[in-house]
């Protein structure tokens, strides 16, 4: 059964995804959820040389960044919006 729906989007507003969170997903971590979203939206976790990209996830309701180790059931509420933000260089 779906306990809540969470909306995750990128910083440019070009991409977004809805995540139905089932009862059994509540014990999973925010990091696990974001990993699946990034995979779905085809957002890179590393550059072409394999160097990892740093991403933060901003929970708009609370105006704070989520921690990957947080439990989904503790951190998120129904209809929450999360923005995925990279720390990324231009050269």
């Amino acid at each position: 059964m779906v306990a809540m729906n969470v909306q995750v989007r990128d910083v440019s507003g070009q991409k977004s995804a809805r995540v139905p969170v089932g009862d059994r997903d509540l014990d999973l971590t925010v990091g696990q959820m974001l990993e699946d979203v990034m995979d779905d939206l085809d957002l890179p976790g590393a550059d072409s040389n394999g160097r990892p990209l740093v991403w933060e996830a901003r929970l708009e309701r609370e105006g704070r960044n989520l921690h990957v180790a947080e439990r989904v059931g503790d951190a998120l509420a129904d209809q929450d919006q999360v923005m995925l933000q990279p720390s990324i260089d231009a050269g």
């Binding site: 909306q7 507003g13 070009q14 991409k15 977004s16 995804a17 809805r18 995540v19 139905p20 969170v21 089932g22 997903d25 999973l28 696990q32 959820m33 990993e35 699946d36 979203v37 995979d39 779905d40 939206l41």
Partner: peptide, 14 residues
């Protein structure tokens, strides 16, 4: 092989 998905993520359209 891809890492197993745990969440049923549904991409939105823009």
């Amino acid at each position: 092989p891809r890492a197993g998905r745990r969440f049923a993520v549904e991409s939105d359209t823009q």
